[in-house]
């Protein structure tokens, strides 16, 4: 019995790191092949992730065919703790594959000045867009970018609902997150929507709003309000499609 336990411990010791690298390699391949990486990272990071996968494969190869760890007991316990720590993000990843940043994240990432920031941040985009009449179907990021241009015009856009208790009657906040690198640096992009009966929507419901943009002063900042003609509840996009990307 003891001999069998020792043999198993030796086997684990030999292949623990190979397993760790192989597991991460598999997860990176899965993220890239299914597009699930976009639930966490900007698509421009795909190339870096692929490069990381190649390095993981190389590391796995040299360990697999190289000399193996010889000790068991406490050194093996220490190595196991290290390997398990490096596997911990995978545990969390498996729980959030179908989840998304929602109203809670909005309250933590909101600074109140996103519209001003986005307007200035996206100033460089104006030259590209020129004065061409924008199509009504546009993202919240596009609305932030063209805020002054589209004042008084019809837009169709979509996002998540947030209605805190302090929200006036007939108003809701429509928001999404825009990311530059990863979800940790997500900036909330939001507009107010005005329509009778919006109280029927719950926080984090995905809706499609068709209405007219009006710029109003909110705490000294220009923010867009969509006077909605219609609001339709829609199916939430996949976690990989939830973000807008700079």
């Amino acid at each position: 019995m003891i001999r069998m336990v020792k043999a198993m411990a030796t086997l684990i010791g030999h292949y623990l790191d190979v397993f760790l690298f192989g597991l991460w390699l598999g997860v990176i391949c899965w993220l890239l092949l299914t597009g699930s990486d976009k639930a966490f990272l900007h698509p421009r990071f795909r190339l870096f992730l692929a490069g990381g996968g190649i390095l993981l494969a190389a590391f796995m190869g040299v360990i697999l065919y190289g000399p193996k760890r010889r000790s068991i007991g406490w050194p093996l316990a220490a190595a196991s703790a290290r390997a398990l720590l490096l596997m911990a993000p995978l545990l969390f990843l498996s729980t959030v594959v179908d989840q998304r940043l929602g109203a809670h994240a909005l309250t933590k990432k909101y600074t109140g000045m996103e519209q001003q920031t986005l307007l200035r941040l996206l100033e460089s985009g104006k030259a590209k867009t020129g004065n061409a009449k924008p199509k009504p179907d546009m993202s919240l990021l596009e609305i932030a970018r063209r805020m002054k241009q589209i004042d008084g015009r019809r837009v169709v856009t979509e996002g998540m609902v947030y209605r805190p208790d302090i929200m006036p009657e007939n108003y809701l906040t429509l928001f999404r997150f825009a990311i530059f690198c990863c979800a940790a640096d997500a900036l909330p992009v939001w507009v107010f929507v005005e329509k009778a009966g919006v109280e029927a929507f719950d926080d984090e419901d995905w809706i499609r709003v068709d209405g007219t943009v009006q710029i109003v002063d909110f705490n000294g900042t220009d923010v867009p309000v969509i006077k909605a003609d219609t609001i339709l509840k829609k199916k939430a996009p996949t976690s990989g499609e939830q973000y807008l990307f700079f």
């Binding site: 992730l49 969390f92 990843l93 690198c181 990863c182």
Partner: peptide, 15 residues
């Protein structure tokens, strides 16, 4: 959800 997505994002970005 916020914690997991943030944690995994930071790790995946740095990996």
């Amino acid at each position: 959800a916020t914690l997991s997505i943030t944690f995994v994002s930071i790790f995946l970005e740095a990996l």
